[in-house]
């Protein structure tokens, strides 16, 4: 299972990074969101850390939808999906491989969003930035697990980006609440940290539920039936 998953992940990363398939779109959309939100500020204002954190994660969520659509669309051009299904490995390796690739791409995109949040939304790094970083790691894992499971469902549908977002975003709410809180801890000068551990626990719970659901349910979403 791991061999196949690693091969799939490498193939997707190769396709996205060296042959530049669609990554630019996801990046631009996220950047635009962050930039456009800075319009809500008057001259000299500074956005509250929580609002900035929310913007950052909203940009990431849109990026996630585009990335996973892109990853699953790769197989549809010439029905390579059937080839993947015939690999001598469980179908879940596709889920795992795509999740890993998606997580790397998402993290790469966030490397661009983070400076944008500091520049456009006027944020300063606080003392507890490690909490934000932990939030990003846990958040990306959850987004990858859920995106990889549900990204497969919109394959071959018209309007698949919007379909995926309306199904995915409500499910992401608990994760988004957690990581937005965690991110805002890192941006605030003097955050109220008493619930920090609970937020981390909640995000970890989300990750485990979606990792489990992905492993169990993926074969029902991704199969040879047309």
């Amino acid at each position: 299972m791991l061999t196949a998953a690693i091969a799939i992940c490498k193939k997707d990363l190769l396709m996205v990074f060296t042959h530049g398939a669609g990554l630019a779109q996801a990046l631009l959309l996220g950047l635009l969101l962050v930039f456009l939100f800075s319009l809500s500020l008057n001259a000299g204002d500074r956005l509250s850390p929580q609002a900035a954190a929310a913007m950052f994660w909203l940009a990431s969520a849109f990026c996630q939808v585009l990335v996973f659509n892109m990853l699953y669309a790769a197989e549809e051009a010439e029905k390579a999906r059937l080839g993947l299904l015939m690999l001598p490995a469980p179908v879940q390796s596709v889920w795992l491989g795509k999740a890993a690739a998606g997580m790397v791409i998402l993290a790469a995109a966030q490397c661009v969003f983070i400076p944008a949040v500091f520049v456009f939304l006027g944020q300063k790094m606080g003392e507890f930035w490690t909490l934000s970083l932990a939030g990003i790691l846990i958040g990306d894992l959850g987004m990858a697990a859920s995106g990889s499971l549900l990204g497969a469902l919109s394959v071959g549908q018209s309007g698949r980006e919007s379909l995926l977002s309306i199904v995915l975003f409500p499910l992401l709410t608990p994760l988004l609440l957690s990581v937005v809180k965690l991110a805002s801890f890192g941006l605030e000068a003097d955050p109220m940290l008493e619930n920090a551990l609970r937020w981390i626990g909640l995000a970890v719970a989300f990750d485990s539920i979606f990792l489990g659901a992905g492993l169990v349910l993926f074969p029902f979403v991704y199969n040879g039936e047309d």
Binding site: L14, M15, A21, A74, E78, K79, A80, L82, G83, M86
Partner: peptide
């Protein structure tokens, strides 16, 4: 298994 569709990734 070889079908009418080629199972290829056009980008690679």
């Amino acid at each position: 298994y070889m079908a009418h569709a080629t199972f290829l990734y056009p980008g690679l």
